[in-house]
Design a protein around this nucleic acid. Structure first.
Lengths: 307, 307
DNA sequence: CACAGCCATGCGTTCATGGCATGCTTGCGG
DNA sequence: CCGCAAGCATGCCATGAACGCATGGCTGTG
């Protein structure tokens, strides 16, 4: 019958989920119920899991089915887009950017902003993710570039990916705006020996411990936060002080102050780009990143409040 | 032969582009060269365009092929992800957010920031796009929410999409930081009658004209910029003044100042959400948007420099 | 000018897919 | 308690899609 469209069964599955029953989907798609049944069965065989929960009155996606459905929707739509854009080549050039959470909220948008200022007419997408995930996506050619930190160290190696150092980001101490030390321009870790620290994850905790240990201090890490913003919230309310990436200064809430640390721990920032996947837009974007981070990681600040 | 994995010819095409020749791809995939040739031919038949440029020394994607390749890569990877996440349902909940360019650089990340502060453990993606495109993606269930403006008016209607008003955004005048009027807290359009205006697109130009006409002023729109950032750049260098969405204030460069306009033109801000696609995370995110934009669009500012 | 490398295509075979008819499960109502 | 209706699964058969093999055509090179 029709060869028209591949991944027929994927579309069928979407229709089934939309309709709530195999028969209804069959009617909508012009198949018989049995064909639909088989297509779904084939899909389930391929996934190795039941995607639908069969009931007397139709079907309902299982947990696996729901997870599958979400990605499948994107995949099928993207496939349509692929065919459409082949027929009428999309003049809009597109930059797919990945970034770790701390870089996704400020650095990436700021770089995009500059990039577009010099040459609009580019589309872009921002995908936040963890270093490992982003690395894989760059290797697969799905992302044009990923912004990552090297902490935790040990970027996986892949000869399809090149890592471009973008400079280093010094960690900064964050305290409440009305904290006695808030007016300081620089500070030593020893002066914070009596403070309570908030931390959110083991990597960050280890970084703080290591840095403090060099100064012979054992920091009191007594408050746990769920994430970076949580740490800052604890600092803002005066419950603790926190160590955050300097790169996030510009996005800090107004009721906290960031204070540069003397001899601060630094994390390397890298752009991951696909080898051989170069194009002029990407090169320019990386250049902008280098400039941007050059400005930021040198003594000046970036509009953040360091007082 | 078992169709173990669907998307066969799509995967083949990716391999061909990676290898640079049909034979090499055939070798890599364990097919014969003829099978690969046919698969590509089928794909081209489906697309209706030649995707490869046949040469004596292998093949090379055509313009259409390159456009196709970009989307196909994403589609195939997403399909893999669908299968993987079906096998081990992904505990990470994910929020796919779309936003128009002006809302993508600040509002969306800021809202995400708050969202994650209250409940981390969510993944997210930001897709910038134009209102029409975003609307379609929400209807297709590909996006959980899209942030759009109603100017130009006439959002397409679709009974799979609900529009939630988020408030209004007043346009603001931007002048160089050393401009004589830079210290003003508010300003009337009449006072700017002698200024040169920079504009970047017809919609924005019309908005300015209409607003000025109400005050009996005919603005001198003498400078063309490529986009919003370009307009602001012209303002920063003292060549012109510009009208920008108030929502972008926080992202303005430091060498310009935004001045609220008396009786300013406003554009409605809306969140588009899929009907029936509700979940608690989405509801909470929309709530955050309402709060955030409530704060911003009321007299206070958002950390931007209005002096 | 012959040759090597690479792609397209005709032919025969295999097997995946869809339709048809039937059987099974479940929930509902007499 | 049982028959019935709605809805999914499956055995059987026909069609044709897709693969391998072998061949032919094209192009750049020695």
């Amino acid at each position: 019958m029709l060869a028209a469209v591949s991944w027929v069964s994927w579309r069928t599955f979407l229709a089934v989920c939309r309709c709530g029953s195999l028969s209804a989907a069959a009617l909508e798609l012009g198949y018989t119920q049995s064909a639909v049944s088989r297509q779904v069965a084939a899909l389930e065989r391929e996934a190795g899991v039941a995607l639908l929960h069969r009931q007397a009155r139709g079907v309902e996606p299982t947990a696996a089915g729901i997870a599958f459905l979400r990605h499948a929707t994107v995949a099928v739509n993207e496939a349509d887009r692929a065919l459409r854009s082949a027929r009428s080549p999309d003049p809009v050039r597109r930059l797919a950017i990945g970034a770790t959470p701390s870089l996704a909220t400020w650095v990436a948008p700021a770089a995009v902003r500059r990039f577009l200022a010099a040459d609009p007419g580019w589309g872009w997408t921002l995908v936040p993710g963890l270093t490992r995930d982003l690395h894989a996506r760059v290797a697969d050619g799905e992302l044009d570039v990923a912004l990552v930190t090297d902490a935790p160290p040990g970027l996986p190696h892949d000869d399809r990916v090149r890592s471009i150092p973008l400079g280093a980001d010094a960690m900064v101490v964050v305290v409440a705006a009305d904290h006695p030390l808030a007016g300081r321009r620089r500070i030593r870790i020893e002066e914070l020996a009596e403070e309570v620290w908030a931390e959110d994850n083991d990597g960050s905790r280890a970084l703080l411990r290591r840095h403090a240990a060099r100064a012979g201090v054992d920091p009191k890490i007594d408050l746990d936060a769920a994430d970076l913003a949580g740490k800052v919230a604890l600092a803002a309310t005066g419950h603790a002080v926190a160590l955050v990436p300097g790169i996030t200064l510009a996005t800090l809430r107004p009721d906290v102050v960031g204070i540069p640390l003397v001899d601060a721990p630094v994390r390397g920032l890298h752009a991951l780009v696909p080898i051989g996947g170069d194009h002029d837009g990407l090169a320019r974007f990386v250049g902008i990143l280098e400039d941007l981070l050059g400005e930021v990681t040198t003594p000046g600040d970036l509009g953040g409040r360091t007082r």
